[in-house]
């Protein structure tokens, strides 16, 4: 490939290859290498960063402001760290309306307050019209580790939990682009996952926020790291009514749609029951469900399998380049 294509940024296989061959190989060091959602630094600190280019910048259920805080906060939470400080870098296109910018800044403030993080440094750049699309935002987050993900302790029989209905952010963004003569009640699930932090003390072995590539991609990537295959039941995966209608119309697979306020958790059988009880009490995760388990009978190592409603088995592949770019 001589030029960078949009597919490199899609979160799929090409992006994995790019990170492995062009980033890790060049900058190789022991903090980078594990490729967690955050890097584990000395003194019990975790550091993560993310850039936000979502189009449109305002969408049902959130905007680029709430997204740029929650996304980075969530990367810390699923790495076992309590988010504390954020940096905020704005790249603004000349001509954006001041009220829009103020609205975004207010969203950032609200989201930061909600997660208990402070924005402690930042940067502002304005570029000539056409050199950016309204506004891009980068945030970096520092958190204090309260635990460490322990994928090496995951064993057959351990349960896979999803914290709520999937696909809402991805669909809300697709629909907000207004291409489909469609209207929908679907709203982005964009929200902080800080309420999951106590679960690190309740036996969670591994967590991951379900973003680009959706549930299927997260499961497939987890399976890649484990010695045992994963099996989830289609019937048990929570989907909202509006999502079920909309994905039928669009002919898309909800398991590949992004979320911005949901996580996948793996825990031992007993702990999983406790965790589910805790999640169900919280309004943000009332529809949490155990959707499957780590296997030693069905499938081969490296595989994430779905038992369909019809009783068939199918492989969950990571997202390929088909879904639309710039959802976060």
């Amino acid at each position: 490939m001589k030029q960078i294509s949009l597919e490199i940024g899609s979160g799929g296989r090409l992006m994995q290859e790019f990170i492995r061959d062009k980033i890790v190989r060049v900058f190789n060091n022991r903090y980078l290498k594990p490729l967690h959602d955050a890097a584990f630094l000395p003194e019990g600190l975790a550091l993560t960063t993310d850039s936000y280019t979502v189009d449109p910048i305002f969408f049902p259920g959130g905007d680029i402001g709430s997204l740029c805080v929650n996304g980075t906060v969530n990367d810390l939470v699923v790495s076992g760290a309590r988010p504390e400080f954020l940096s905020l870098a704005l790249i603004i296109e000349e001509g954006i309306d001041m009220p829009d910018l103020e609205k975004i800044l207010l969203s950032i403030k609200k989201a930061a307050t909600r997660s208990g993080v402070k924005i402690v440094t930042g940067d502002t750049k304005v570029v000539p019209r056409g050199q950016a699309d309204r506004i891009y935002i980068n945030t970096a987050g520092v958190g204090r580790l309260i635990s460490r993900p322990q994928p090496e302790r995951i064993n057959p029989g351990d349960k896979i939990i999803v914290t709520g209905p999937v696909g809402e952010h991805g669909l809300a963004i697709m629909l907000a682009r207004n291409n489909f003569r469609m209207s929908s009640k679907v709203r982005s699930d964009c929200a902080p996952l800080t309420f999951l932090l106590p679960l690190w003390k309740k036996g969670a072995l591994w967590m991951r926020d379900i973003t680009r590539g959706g549930l299927a991609t997260v499961l497939s990537e987890l399976a890649d790291r484990l010695k045992h295959p994963l099996l989830v039941e289609e019937e048990k995966i929570p989907l909202s009514r509006a999502i079920r209608g909309a994905v039928e119309i669009l002919g898309i697979d909800p398991l590949y749609l992004a979320c911005e306020g949901r996580a996948l958790i793996v825990a031992g059988e007993k702990e999983a029951a406790q965790i589910l009880k805790y999640l169900k009490k919280n309004p943000a995760s009332r529809q949490a469900a155990i959707i499957g388990e780590v296997q030693d009978r069905i499938g081969r190592p490296g595989e994430a399998l779905l038992r369909t409603r019809s009783g068939g088995l199918r492989l969950l592949e990571p997202l390929t380049s088909e879904l639309l770019p710039r959802i976060c």
Binding site: D253, L306, R307, T308, R309, S310, G311, G312, L313, R314
Partner: peptide, 9 residues
């Protein structure tokens, strides 16, 4: 046929 896993069945 594929998505529902019917083919092997």
């Amino acid at each position: 046929l594929h998505r529902s896993g019917l083919k092997p069945l």
